[in-house]
């Protein structure tokens, strides 16, 4: 069976800046892989390498069993790619742009029509009259063709409103259920959290090793987020980490969080959430970890 993405030790340098320093990443069929990291971590460069738009200095990359360095055109025929910093042609109407963008591929209308219904775009209008979110929706429509095996999406939810993000989430889940592979980079961690089968964290061109992610996740298992109705004294065996502006308390529990929660006065607790389920917390933990290790 064809592996959508298999990359080992991918490195790329731009002048003095090491954009990628030996990145490993796999994406399997019927899988959404969240690609998470701060700005400048090398995510976009890696995606461009997958498409053959940027050459790599070292490493082995296979996309649908093809090498992007030599078979980039074949890859681009079979992969849908949404660049992160792209724009659309302002002088065209939405329909003209879609006709142009999709005209490079065999004709198929199934997904664009489905997506157009979801996004409700005024395709007859000139793109220069579109808002930033509408332009992004149009770029998505032009990208999300159903006849490809792999979707490489660099910040697809950029500038989208909450409703459109929900629609995008539906679309991507539909693609995954249809057996497609998706590599999804986004700064909206809640979206990635909701969609991705698994996440790959990248900092300064390097992937955070799986064991470090696991240990950070394990540490978070002891974190509890509490919303309380009144000021309370926390029972022993726990330490207050942070009091958030919305009144939420972040507490690190020594033992089993559920047992500790049982010690709280029930009437004073509005909501309680045990950590390790939120990608945002995991990302923050890894990010702090990375800062410390530098």
């Amino acid at each position: 069976m064809t592996t959508p993405v298999s990359a080992r030790g991918v490195a790329r340098r731009f002048g003095k800046r090491q954009a990628l320093a030996g990145l490993d990443l796999d994406v399997g069929p019927a899988e959404i892989v969240g690609f998470v990291g701060p700005n400048g971590a090398g995510k976009s460069t890696f995606m461009r390498i997958l498409l053959g738009l940027v050459s790599r200095d070292a490493g082995d990359v296979r996309v649908l069993d093809l090498d992007p360095a030599t078979e980039d055109l074949s890859i681009r025929r079979r992969v849908a790619y949404l660049p992160g910093e792209t724009s659309v042609y302002a002088g065209m109407t939405g329909t003209e742009f879609l006709r142009f963008a999709l005209g490079f591929y065999p004709r198929t209308q199934e997904l664009p029509r489905r997506a157009a219904d979801l996004f409700e775009l005024p395709l007859g209008r000139r793109i220069r009259e579109y808002s930033a979110g509408m332009k992004q929706k149009l770029a998505l429509l032009a990208t999300l063709r159903p006849d490809v095996e792999l979707y490489v999406l660099d910040e697809p939810d950029r500038a989208l409103d909450a409703t459109a993000r929900l629609h995008l989430r539906e679309l991507l889940a539909w693609l995954r259920d249809a057996g497609k592979a998706v590599l999804l980079s986004s700064h909206h961690l809640a979206e990635v959290d909701a969609l991705a089968n698994r996440c790959v964290f990248v900092f300064a061109g390097r992937r955070i090793p799986e064991e470090r992610v696991s240990s950070a996740r394990a540490a978070l298992r002891h974190e509890v987020r509490l919303r309380v109705t009144e000021a309370i004294d926390l029972p022993g065996g726990a330490e207050l980490v942070e009091s958030l502006p919305d009144g939420t308390l972040r507490v690190l529990v020594d033992g089993e969080p559920l047992a500790w929660l049982a010690l709280l006065p029930a009437h004073a607790v509005l909501a309680a959430e045990v950590g390790a389920t939120r990608l945002e917390d995991l990302y923050r933990a890894l990010s702090l970890d990375h800062e410390v290790s530098r």
Partner: peptide, 11 residues
């Protein structure tokens, strides 16, 4: 206009 990458991503 930042459309170059979109164009180059075509096959």
């Amino acid at each position: 206009n930042q459309t170059l990458e979109f164009l180059l991503a075509r096959p």
